[in-house]
Design a protein around this nucleic acid. Structure first.
Lengths: 335, 335
DNA sequence: CTGTTAGCGCGTTCAG
DNA sequence: CTGAACGCGCTAACAG
């Protein structure tokens, strides 16, 4: 394949008999150019196959069109959909997305942040794993929107996790459950903490005692998760389980199936974050659904707004989850 | 937030009492610099929080570190995992990924290709929707690797779709099925065409007649897909269905459930592309599994190799799928 | 409305 | 081993 020298503004200018700056104005649409000259330039651009050089523009303007995005794990459907939502909005507005996965590792996240700084990203969207990346970016003047989790004092779009957790557990309590297990991830993320708070809140509101043994907090990539869940079931004999994310719901479901426990007769199960399989298994899983793609779309929109108006006050958008009651929940055994 | 002027090489040079070019050599590791001076420069960089300017470097070198990637639909688990594999390898080698979704639209794809040209991407990976994007890129001297589908004469990493389709259908035939429906997408993509070829091949090898009515070809986002599948079941009374991708398998599954048909007693079902739910429903779905993340990883590796060695001959890597026999397939009704 | 001028920050000659 | 000089392609001032 031949790699012809790319055509530049100077080429267009020469071709159309104008100066480079006029060509620049004509193509970017900024500033005055007589209609006739503009037409001539556009035609030349078309004819020569002109492609603007993004790095030259970025170098000059000190700002690129490539928004940095970091999510924990692209392979997880949740983050995939989140990213899909972000990308849609960005593309609709003529921006691109540089996407990196950080495996929930604060160090990787920080590396990504530095990369985005180097790229002069106009803004960054992240599911924060720690405060460092956000603060580095903000300190350097790069707008940041946190999605799903909220760690800084800046812009964010999050789900009302407390409400989601509370709805789930209230539903179980109203069915008559008194020994409800909570399966969560052991982080300080507002998502995990919020769902647990919701679990507790529902208990308090119902006058039910909180039993610490019923609360299981797993590490992010805990390899023994299923064993620990199984132990919990044995030890505490819960009549219902609230699994605070889609991975944990899947693991709980496997444990229950492995032990031959029937839903909802022997155990009730509520998940958080509706994914495909939950509606397909029998019985289908009752779940707190969150608007995942919308989370991404709103995050991107908020960032774009912030880029346009850097000085406005920080915004936190709270999206509401919805409890979908399906077949995996029912009254406890003896009720 | 203050946005301090970013520190440049000139700042480091001043700080360390050297020239800019020396600083450049020290930080990039290219060219001679005395150890002492290098150490001094590194220290200064650390202290001042130097971040290299990627666009300046790209402008100078005429090549960025951001690989362009386009997939059909990030929200689909298949493409999410593909992208995850690509991103992993890229990150391991110090490259970034600019990701765009094109909704299987050749026009969007072409737009993305132009954007990557503007960004001076060192290479592009795509699930091609048409020949235009690839050819534009190649013509401009940008290496391209096609993944999952193969449309050009260039580099590609694909699944052995013919073999996958053949294995699936052979399995059904060996169970005694003679009326096997094929659910596929009506494109010219090698993936869709290959799976259908495999379906036919298995018939021919077994001396079974091919009945055109049993082959259903749906549009990419066909809204009436489930109705059409249902019609097919009514009209042709197949005893088994081969659904050539994960979406179609899900739709077929819903149709069968809706009609109260039990798997595998009333109908056998084989899918293509193993996703989470297939192992969780009962009975679990027999499926042709493909190494999706590996597909992405190989694509990225191949691209990196091509970037390093632009002149080597085009390579097509063929990855083997695996038939996982589960509970959704059995002998036909009367057998 | 248009052209001239002057960098943006970096890497790469080429002398020394 | 190091520094001076130049230019990558584009846009922002500023004259005209």
């Amino acid at each position: 394949m031949s790699a012809p020298r790319p055509v530049t503004l100077a080429d267009l200018a020469r071709e159309a008999g104008t100066s480079r700056s006029t060509a620049s104005r004509a193509l970017s649409g900024q500033g005055y150019v007589s209609p006739a000259v503009r037409k001539r330039l556009m035609a030349a651009a078309e004819r020569l196959g002109y492609v603007p050089n993004a790095s030259a523009r970025t170098l000059k303007q000190r700002r690129s069109r490539v928004v940095g995005v970091v999510v924990s794990d692209l392979g997880n459907q949740f983050y995939g959909r989140l990213a899909a939502g972000v990308e849609q909005v960005l593309r609709e507005h003529g921006y691109q997305m540089a996407l990196v996965g950080d495996n929930s590792d604060a160090h990787e996240e920080l590396t990504a942040a530095r990369t985005f700084l180097a790229m002069h990203a106009p803004g960054v969207i992240l599911t924060p794993g720690g405060p460092e990346a956000t603060s580095l970016l903000l300190r350097s003047g790069v707008p940041v929107v946190e999605v799903d989790r909220h760690m800084s004092a800046g812009d964010a779009v999050v789900i009302d996790n407390v409400r989601g957790g509370r709805d789930a557990v209230q539903h179980l309590i109203s069915l008559g459950h008194k020994r409800i297990a909570h399966l969560g991830v052991d982080t300080e993320f507002t998502s995990d903490v919020g769902r647990l708070d919701g679990y507790r809140l529902a208990h308090v509101e119902a006058g039910l005692p909180l039993r610490e043994g019923l609360v299981l907090r797993l590490g992010i990539h805990e390899p023994t998760a299923e064993e620990r869940i199984s132990e919990l079931v044995t030890r505490e004999a819960p009549t219902a389980i609230f699994a605070a994310n889609n991975i944990l719901a899947e693991q709980a479901w496997h444990v229950l199936r492995g032990r031959g426990l029937a839903l909802p007769r022997d155990m009730s199960l509520v998940g958080f974050d509706d994914v495909q399989w939950m509606e397909m298994v029998s019985p289908p899983i009752t779940v707190v659904e969150q608007p995942t793609i919308e989370l991404g779309r709103r995050g991107a929109s908020l960032l774009l707004r912030r880029i346009a108006e850097p000085e406005s006050a920080a915004t936190v958008e709270l999206l509401q989850p919805t409890l979908l009651v399906r077949g995996s929940t029912g009254p406890p055994r003896g009720a």
